[in-house]
Design a protein around this nucleic acid. Sequence first.
DNA 1: CGGGCCGTTGAAACCCGTCAAGGTATGTGG
DNA 2: CCACATACCTTGACGGGTTTCAACGGCCCG
Lengths: 212, 212
Amino acid sequence: MTFNRRTVTTRRDITCGEVTDRVYLVMSGFACRYKTLPGGARRIVSFVLPGDLCYMHDAGRFGRDLRVGALAPCSVADIPRSRLLEVVNAFPAISHAIWWVTLRELSRAREWIVNDTRPADKRLAHLFCELLVCLQVIGQADADGFEFPLTQLDMADALGISHVHINRVLQSLRTNGLISWSNQQVAFPNVEALKAFAEFDPAYLCFDGYGP
Amino acid sequence: MTFNRRTVTTRRDITCGEVTDRVYLVMSGFACRYKTLPGGARRIVSFVLPGDLCYMHDAGRFGRDLRVGALAPCSVADIPRSRLLEVVNAFPAISHAIWWVTLRELSRAREWIVNDTRPADKRLAHLFCELLVCLQVIGQADADGFEFPLTQLDMADALGISHVHINRVLQSLRTNGLISWSNQQVAFPNVEALKAFAEFDPAYLCFDGYGP
DNA sequence: CGGGCCGTTGAAACCCGTCAAGGTATGTGG
DNA sequence: CCACATACCTTGACGGGTTTCAACGGCCCG
């Protein structure tokens, strides 16, 4: 059951042209959903981690203005939409799981809206908390850190602030002993203090209670 | 087929206690989904217009930290969740429609994230554009304006800015001839100019192509 | 008449963006 | 091995956007 598998390099889109009859399964790497503003600025609206599906829903009508790009080299499997439908029909429980991840996405998008009201330092801390928990679930983070191939500019676009300002905010968090980040490795010396500072409540991630 | 129908006054929540076995249909008025930050600030993450369903999905797991409140007097119908399931089973096409509105919510939430990267004046203009189109679809707006019972503070919480600043931004838009707002009546002397200023592209609203 | 709620305005301080420049690492080609 | 280019990180200075605090006026309603 291996599909057309390929590698997408950093700063390239995962979509190939205007094809809409496929869904994309990210198997490794680091990607994001983003939009580009008329001025040329990029705003990342969510991260795509290994195991995530993209363009699951009819791409012709939903998310036409939303693109998916690699932030680190990604291994991607192209799956024909028809194949996905077959699987859903054969195993109705899959339909339930698809509902699950969709509602999870919605809940997370809303928390990102809320996060945008916080000052930049708490915003950055909150995003790191989210990444820590999500990466732990897929076994790509230990208790207090993870490997992190993204640049400061990527994080700036995910938070909607400038890359200059994120640098300053990051150093403030560094000197406060909340974050260390170098050589593509992020660590949090005091995870509880970080979560408290970020006002982080993992409920919105909708992990607990995941069914079949 | 009339259900337990009631009226919710301004600044009150539509939910009644911790009940999770009901969905709520807003039949008239103006409501919003919101979260409250630890500091006490309220952030609105989406508006709820007449015809919208709330807590459609298992409220026990999703959206526990999300509340629904009335911004103007609302007429609400409480529907037992079991009744909704009956209807879905009896008319499978309904299931398709529920998918539709859910994906629409997701698309809109993501555009709100993008909107948060714009300066406050464009942000406000963009939100007005969204409201204009959505209210037109349900027949509660004409070509260049609508009745609007919300306060400036409500709009501030929907945009994540202070009520003082929204007042200043609003006056700037007023003097530029883009918006007039008084006596709960909003009008846009030049809709096209407003949309251009706001960088508004209605694609994300996912209205076109709505099926059965 | 008094009390909320809402809109409005001014002043000061802060957060953050932009511009500009320099520094470091990595990779490439000569 | 060196020159060069590129991408990324860092820093300072400056200006503008935004928040906060404070105060006042209008309006509706009890």
